[in-house]
Design a protein around this nucleic acid. Structure first.
Lengths: 332, 332
DNA sequence: TTGAAAGCGCTAACAA
DNA sequence: TTGTTAGCGCTTTCAA
């Protein structure tokens, strides 16, 4: 900037004014500065600027996701980028891998970079450790899961309603013996999906004893094995609700191995690519990651802009998408 | 930092030394400083530090991808995060959407944040515009496609070899009438895949006239329509090579609509989730995004560390994965 | 309309 | 082993 000022023959503050599009610069001076800055290929250093700027905005935000390589996270990441990018905010994304330790490490790394805000899927049992930062005015929005031990905005899918929808849908197709295949029970969303599913069954008079619940399934293989066991036992279920993508995949594999894909109903939580190309197409309770991401970004921007209203949890509805597997009726 | 120094009753430089783990601080002083910094919940401001630090490292890097929401990019993003994160480097990722305009805008945004390096999938016809930055010592590594108009490291899949492998595989299963379904021809990788495919056919004596080439397919629907046309015309191909994921999906849909999934061979470039669960399983030429990402990150780190050897293009081999669709033989 | 001076939080260079 | 001073590139404040 000094160099530009020298070349243009003006003061450094004038250059700053031109570069930042502030008013109060004559057109002639403006042109001189613009020329000089082009000649020198000048690039404003945002970090240096934010050091002094009121509010100290760095125009960057941190995004903590299960893993940037998972499609659900990818959609959220993209929605984030679009919404924040429109305001000139760049986003640091990082993967948590279900590791509470990482959660803290990454947050520290982002704080060190003085991000203007944080959007995160909480992993640790409690986010109370973040209270000092949050109350120090660092905007935070939680997504997918509500935070524990701290009051902050959150944007989540209506997990229990999704589970209930799945239950009602299967019941309406005549099933009585049902199974729930769930992820690790320490995961809040998994618990809510189960709860919604089981409660709806209860409301409709299905005794708990005829519902098989298998949990702590966190990958395809464990889900496949659990499904195999379930279906080869005495009095197997005629319908399965799987609480998550990988679990759904495992269940699909087991059904195929047993030749039961067209006999046993299946509803999976989470939509996935090519679900309609399976045979039968896979009925799912779809989440809307792009809406979640967009809404979370909007909340973050509002907080950055000074919104100090009470923290609120925003719920994005899930949606039943019928593709065949969920509409299979039990054999007579 | 001043506050910490005051509270600990030491000089500011001593605090700096402790926080940055420099040597030459007595254990007693160290503890005093550590205590004070914990009490104040002190967080080092990296941006301020890099302003003065020799080399001006910001410990951040920029990653430009087709879209953070696409699975291939997601894998690369993840590999990047792992490799760079191990060195304390945080990554800004951004989506290009095949828009050359965006490419420049985003690069400018990253330069303004003084990233230590840039990893990018080039979109624009030429990257010559980046020469000033690159020669000004900004490390850059190109991935997926080689840059044009600038000399820099690149990490790419062996696209033409992948195309040739597909051709050879189909020929070895007795096909004579083949079709190539390609993405936009201005995309370098698409051109290379076609070239490898066609050249291998030539080498094995297949006349060009028996090869149907349909290009400029950039989404599922256009690929589906092209495939339908191809298969319902006179003398249809008995084998299809599709140059990209979405194109493969479109071809799969068309084959299914016509009831030809088990009659017409299909090899797709790019692996995808559930490819083995299709009926038949889809044979693919798989790329290795995680290897590409890792290698690119390593090259970037080497450059950041001062490697000044001549730029080089690294080739990551693709891999044929047989799952059934590519092993279908033509009807007698 | 323009610019000089101070200072953001930190590290380099040097002095004690 | 410790501390002081200068200054990184910018914006703020205030004066011209």
């Amino acid at each position: 900037m000094r160099h530009v000022a020298a070349l243009a023959g003006v003061g450094i503050k004038t250059v700053s004014r031109v570069i930042n599009d502030e008013s109060g610069v004559s057109e002639a001076t403006r042109q001189k500065v613009l020329n000089a800055s082009q000649q020198l290929n000048y690039q404003l250093d945002m970090a240096a600027g934010s050091l002094r700027r009121a509010g100290r905005r760095t125009l960057s935000a941190g995004l903590l996701l299960p893993s940037v390589s998972n499609p659900f996270s990818g959609e959220i990441n993209r929605a984030m980028e679009d919404a924040l990018g429109a305001r000139g905010i760049a986003v640091f994304a990082a993967s948590l891998d279900d590791d509470p330790q990482r959660e803290q490490t990454i947050i520290a790394a982002f704080l060190g970079r003085r991000v203007d805000g944080l959007i995160l899927t909480p992993i640790a049992k409690s986010q109370a450790y973040a209270i000092p930062e949050h109350s120090r005015d660092l905007p935070m929005v939680f997504i997918d899961r509500e935070p524990v031990g701290i009051e902050a905005d959150a944007v989540v899918t209506n997990n229990s309603a999704g589970g209930a929808t799945a239950a009602a849908h299967l019941l309406s197709h005549g099933h009585v013996r049902l199974a729930y295949l769930g992820d690790r029970t320490e995961i809040q969303t998994a618990r809510l999906r189960r709860q919604g599913f089981i409660e709806e069954l209860g409301r409709q008079g299905i005794p708990t004893s005829t519902v098989s619940v298998r949990e702590d399934l966190h990958d395809e293989e464990s889900a496949r094995l659990a499904t195999l066991e379930l279906l080869t036992a005495a009095d197997p279920p005629t319908a399965i609700f799987s609480s998550q993508n990988l679990v759904t995949f495992g269940a699909m594999r087991a059904l195929r191995e047993l030749g039961l894909s067209k006999q046993v109903a299946l509803i999976g939580f989470d939509d996935f690519t090519l679900a309609d190309m399976m045979d039968p197409g896979v009925t799912v309770i779809a989440q809307h990651p792009e809406r979640i991401g967009k809404l979370a970004a909007e909340r973050l921007l509002a907080r950055i802009d000074g919104d100090t209203s009470a923290p609120h949890t925003y719920v994005v509805p899930s949606e039943l998408i019928q593709r065949g597997s969920g509409e299979i009726r039990p054999r007579a």
